[in-house]
Design a protein around this nucleic acid. Structure first.
Lengths: 244, 244
DNA sequence: ATCTTCTTTACGGGATCCCGCAAGATCCCT
DNA sequence: AGGGATCTTGCGGGATCCCGTAAAGAAGAT
């Protein structure tokens, strides 16, 4: 069995190596320090299992997993991450193909838990998701305090700095609808619940700040969204008024 | 010699332990997993040296170092961080007292570099700052593309979601001045430099997004600023119109 | 089919934001 | 003291944002 390790932190990489040879003694290890290198290595080998960090320079673990699964949906992938940010959990759930085996464990988990998860995913083809992650996942799928996909997309557009008008254009709805969605978003994020008056904040900014503090948005998700936005802007030539 | 390790990641903590006993064989090690525990331990011991991670739950490395240096300015502190975010570099430079010995090395640095830095700081009382950090520091102090303290404060207020009016109130300047500063900030962040027209973005939001992508702001700095804001809001009872 | 509920869209208006212009104020340099 | 650069502040106005109200459409339940 071949296992590809994709992890930028040298210390963690060494640790992973130790755990893997201890858990799966007859496995061959390949290592990469970021997503781009990882993808290249993955293409050179036929069938393999992957352990990948989510937060890496150049190319996120999520992005790498996405292209990897598109080419070979049967690949077993273990996500190994520092954080249980809702942004990551949402990102991973969105890309896992039908019936693929994958795992999601936190770096704070014990070595035993990691080893067990590795065996379950790579040998048994099961899905193993850490308790902490699981709870985030459920909270995120729960229909009450949480966000639909449309709302989330608009929240991202908001965080990127788009105007209402442009969000409407991009998502194919009217200006007023965007504003309605925004009102929902503000409400769900609790923008109004503040000790001091309520005319204190710039609502759209406050919403994004709260989303950030709540780990619904993080730098990685914004980076990716920024790239998608740039592509969309280039592809849809606007009548560009040009204020200045 | 006593060395206090404050680091939440167990793997990194073990690595640090190894490096320290290898580098300073006759040192006594104490360990804490976050800033609060670290502060408590630091108070129990007379003179010590500290190695601290910047990003930790509950209490940041910067916050911990701040109170620690306030009580005992002679303490030697080694900051050991994953990132060279300008937000961190700025945070550290702001709190280092006159003549204190400290170091700032990245976790991606080699073991030798870390060991060398530890000896320089703890034994020789020198200051050792990684090359990557150094360059960020200089860029940050450079008077041209970069931010004065006032501008940075206002940028943070902006990111917290305050209105122009409230920023003016908080910083003791007029509304128009705030808007002028904002214009400067927008300019320095390059809000206008975009391929597609320039009426695409909500400027204040776009500015914060760019600052985030540029690592000038990060989650930690916002968390801290949010706490300070809450304190200020509570301390300065406003005439609170109350829109709703 | 009818009723309920949710979403979408339009109109309109008050508040805020962004900014050009210009008159002081402040500071630095010589 | 004089000159120049920068910062502050006010006025005014166009654009945007936030939202109350309400009509029309869509989806589901009985």
């Amino acid at each position: 069995m071949t296992v590809l390790i994709v992890e930028d932190d040298a210390v963690h990489r060494a640790f992973l190596r130790d755990v893997l040879v201890g858990t799966l003694p007859d496995c061959r290890l390949i290592e990469a320090a970021d997503g781009v290198a990882g993808e290249a290595l993955a293409r050179e080998h036929e069938s393999m299992n992957v352990v990948v960090d989510l937060q890496m320079p150049r190319r996120t673990g999520v992005e790498m997993a996405k292209t990897l699964w598109r080419e070979r949906p049967a690949t077993a992938i273990m996500f190994w991450s520092n954080y249980a940010d809702e942004a990551y959990v949402r990102g991973v759930s969105r890309i896992v193909p039908e019936g693929a085996a994958y795992g999601y464990v936190l770096k704070s988990a014990s070595e035993e838990r990691l080893a067990l998860a590795l065996k379950s995913v790579f040998l048994e083809g099961q899905c193993v998701i850490d308790r902490e992650i699981r709870s985030v996942q459920q909270k995120s799928a729960d229909r009450s305090g949480s966000f639909t996909d449309v709302e989330y997309e608009i929240l991202v557009d908001l965080a990127l700095g788009l105007t209402d008008r442009l969000i409407a254009e991009r998502r194919g709805i009217s200006l007023r609808s965007v504003q309605n969605r925004l009102a929902q978003i503000y409400d769900k994020l609790g923008v109004y619940e503040t000790e001091a008056g309520s005319d204190v904040f710039n609502l759209r900014m406050r919403a994004v700040t709260l989303a950030g503090l709540r780990k619904l948005l993080n730098r990685n998700s914004l980076e990716q969204a920024e790239a998608e936005l740039a592509a969309w802007l280039a592809a849809s030539p606007r009548a560009s008024g040009g204020r200045r």
